[in-house]
Nucleic acid binder design. Structure first.
Lengths: 230, 230
DNA sequence: GTCAGTTTTAAACAGATGTTTGAAATGTCA
DNA sequence: TGACATTTCAAACATCTGTTTAAAACTGAC
């Protein structure tokens, strides 16, 4: 009953389920995925999921685990760049591999799409994901951004700048449906990785270079200074 | 049977349904919302939705319509700013009201949250939304960004820069679950509108000022030049 | 070949959910 | 008031979906 370690033993059905489930979950998300569709794709009986993974959620979190490891080896964050490479270069590499992880729809990349969904409509698995995958990447980006900003920049400012970079990247993952409707015949549908990487890198580097003192409170036009209510 | 124009006649149930539905749809999205919960909140019978709006989707699109008009008057995009105000100022106002529309969780703002959901997990209503709401805003932003970039900047570059700005904004709307988990005790949960507006405005203005020639193709480190497959 | 353990299977179960129905209630207007 | 249309209601209907069950099929060691 302990399946926690995929302990060899040709569990062909189990593997087929993981494979099919990855496809379906990445395509339609946890909620909209049906066990029946997954089992059909896997050529298995409806009861197979419950037998091998306890329940739908067990299958989901296992898929997340497996695909996570897969993605990590497929698109390593540092992309084989030396740790002492110039920060500008490390930023570009970080942005490129992030874009690949999240945007690429090749078969290898169901993880990115699952992550994108998990960010917007979280399941119970998000906590684990944040700890194991998102947090380390955030730290890495903070380190890069920190070394691109003047020494002594407060951590909060570093964080805000990092988030501005991540936001630009994730936008293309989250809002693709809107983009393709905005300008159907434009290049939106057919984004080239290099072009996008270069734009976001340049845009962000320019912003970082020009980082004015620190955005501590300054009154501006028509500002109402009210917190965004929760 | 033609309810297309809300033709007076004190249809109290109809109104209550629209009100309750706006709450529920904004909270949990179209899929996860149940007619039974909406009707209970509205103090109406389960059949009421089908009677007044044909079906669940009819109710949804009507809610979207009504809330759209409401939001437009609540958070006007130009925020009462003169059309000939300096572009820098127009950008700041644009960013602030966008943030308000999308992030604010006050009662008035169910539309922003519905839009955010619609962008990530579209329903049939997205086409209409893009045409009526998103497209005009995109044009407005393009105009602002265009006038901040050197004359003669190709439209594609203007678009990329605009998207970088929108991405920063929407990030906070879409990824809040992740943010609050990343640093639970930090200011993530309690974002102040002014601080955020100022950061994104400065970040973007700096990037726009420094807009290098045009990011037309240049080979960089470890670049693989492969399009992001669809 | 037998037998214990594992895996698969068809069927049914249980609950949720959008929708329909036909009667009852309510409102409108002459 | 009485006749007609509109609106509400409880109940049932039809699907869909995750899960369980108990029997059957399979596997591998002896």
């Amino acid at each position: 009953m302990d399946e926690s370690t995929e302990s060899g033993g040709h569990a062909v059905t189990r593997t087929a389920l993981l494979e099919a489930a990855a496809d379906v979950f990445a395509d339609v998300g946890f909620q909209n995925a049906t066990i029946r569709e997954i089992c059909q794709k896997a050529g298995a009986n409806v009861a197979a999921v419950n037998y091998h993974f306890r329940d739908k959620e067990g299958l989901y979190s296992e898929v997340l685990r497996v695909q996570g490891r897969l993605a990590q080896s497929r698109f390593p964050s540092n992309a084989g760049l030396a740790d002492d490479a110039p920060a500008e270069q490390r930023l570009e590499v970080f942005i490129r591999s992030f874009l690949q992880r999240v945007l690429s729809e090749e078969i290898a990349n169901r993880h990115g799409r699952m992550m994108a969904r998990e960010m917007v409509e979280p399941t119970a698995a998000l906590d684990q994901l944040v700890r194991q995958i998102i947090q380390p990447q955030a730290n890495q980006l903070h380190e890069i951004v920190g070394s691109l900003l003047p020494a002594g920049t407060p951590p909060e400012t570093v964080r805000l700048h990092s988030l501005s970079i991540v936001g630009q990247i994730l936008f293309y993952a989250h809002c693709r449906p809107v983009l393709s409707r905005l300008e159907p015949r434009s290049a939106y549908d057919f984004i080239e990785l290099d072009q996008l990487t270069q734009h976001i890198t340049r845009f962000s580097l320019a912003a970082l270079r020009d980082s004015s003192p620190t955005p501590t409170r300054r009154r501006t036009a028509s500002s109402s200074r009210r917190p965004i209510s929760r």
